[in-house]
């Protein structure tokens, strides 16, 4: 029984570490996609956030650094917004550009700032995001594993709640969803289509930046070139999987997180190849889609630039 509880605790702990980066980014992606702008640049925005957070945390309070990470992501969100909304650029192309630019900028700055090293300085425990209930439970106990994760692990679920509320209980949320379905009708009714879309794409960058910072300021303690390797794409997949709703994206991210957690615990036993276990979440996603979910309805105006007629 003790062993089961201990392993369960470890799995939950690993899940709570690997879910937040995905979930923050997925929430961001939900904003953007629902307003009708495809944002494939999530990966790049996470990378720049991961970098900015890790650097800022060397100098300022971790929470301020976390915010700075979000703003760095938002900056690239703004860039994507200008290209896609005002300049009617192809959204996929602009996103691809950001996936090259943002990591390029991050690594370039890292090398320029830290004498040619691609890694930022390692953060001390006090410079990282704080752990909740630290030292309340004995080290290694179930309680410690479940309740003493980094603050970001709990914050992200608060964020889901807020996003859900905004989407379904506020006027703004209704407008976001409407703009993603039929921008012209919204325009006719006096909704500022461009304004809503700008807001959503910038927020998507902001949340992606936070997601990136979760990796470098909680999971790890520095930025490395391998900090963000595909999490952004998995977040996009989670959003499609979750049918473009915040709660759906959350469930999808938790699924990826749990698989990751099981992998971490199981590969310590060395029974099955960790590589095969790593494959599970992706295979499971496909199977779940085929068996249960089926078609994910993309917002009708997704990917189409909207041009105001004069």
């Amino acid at each position: 029984m003790d062993v089961i509880m201990k392993n369960l605790g470890l799995i939950i702990n690993a899940t709570m570490i690997s879910t937040p980066p995905l979930l923050f980014a997925a929430l961001g992606s939900t904003f953007s996609e629902r307003s009708g702008v495809v944002n494939i640049g999530i990966e790049g925005m996470m990378t720049i956030g991961a970098f900015a957070g890790a650097v800022a945390a060397c100098f300022v309070n971790p929470w301020l650094a976390f915010l700075i990470a979000g703003l760095a992501g938002a900056l690239f969100g703004l860039m994507h917004a200008i290209a896609c909304i005002s300049l009617h650029a192809d959204q996929t192309i602009s996103g691809t550009a950001i996936n090259f630019l943002a990591p390029g900028v991050a690594l370039f700055l890292a090398k320029a700032m830290f004498d040619g090293s691609t890694d930022t300085p390692a953060l001390a425990v006090t410079q990282k995001l704080p752990k909740l209930f630290d030292e309340v439970f004995p080290v290694g106990s179930f309680g410690n594993n479940v309740f003493s994760a980094y603050a970001s692990s709990y914050l992200v679920f608060v964020a889901v709640l807020i996003v859900w509320f905004v989407f379904y209980k506020t006027k703004l949320g209704l407008r976001i969803r409407a703009v993603g379905e039929h921008p012209k009708a919204c325009d006719t009714l006096g909704v500022n289509v461009y304004g809503i879309r700008y807001f959503c794409v910038i927020i998507s960058g902001f949340l992606s930046g936070l997601g990136g910072a979760c990796v470098t300021m909680a999971t790890m303690n520095q930025f490395r070139p391998t900090s963000i390797v595909g999490q952004g794409f998995i977040a996009i997949a989670a959003v499609i999987f979750g049918k473009f709703t915040p709660q759906g994206a959350m469930l999808a991210c938790i699924l990826f997180g749990i698989c990751n957690g099981i992998k971490t615990v199981a590969s310590a036993g060395n029974v099955v190849s960790p590589n095969l276990i790593s494959m599970i979440p992706y295979v499971v996603t496909i199977i779940v889609l085929v068996l249960f979910v089926g078609k994910s309805r993309v917002p009708a105006a997704n990917g189409k630039p909207y041009e105001k007629s004069r």
Partner: peptide, 11 residues
């Protein structure tokens, strides 16, 4: 099954 190709390709 109408599964979004971007999603399955990432997988």
């Amino acid at each position: 099954w109408g599964i979004n190709e971007v999603l399955s390709m990432i997988m």
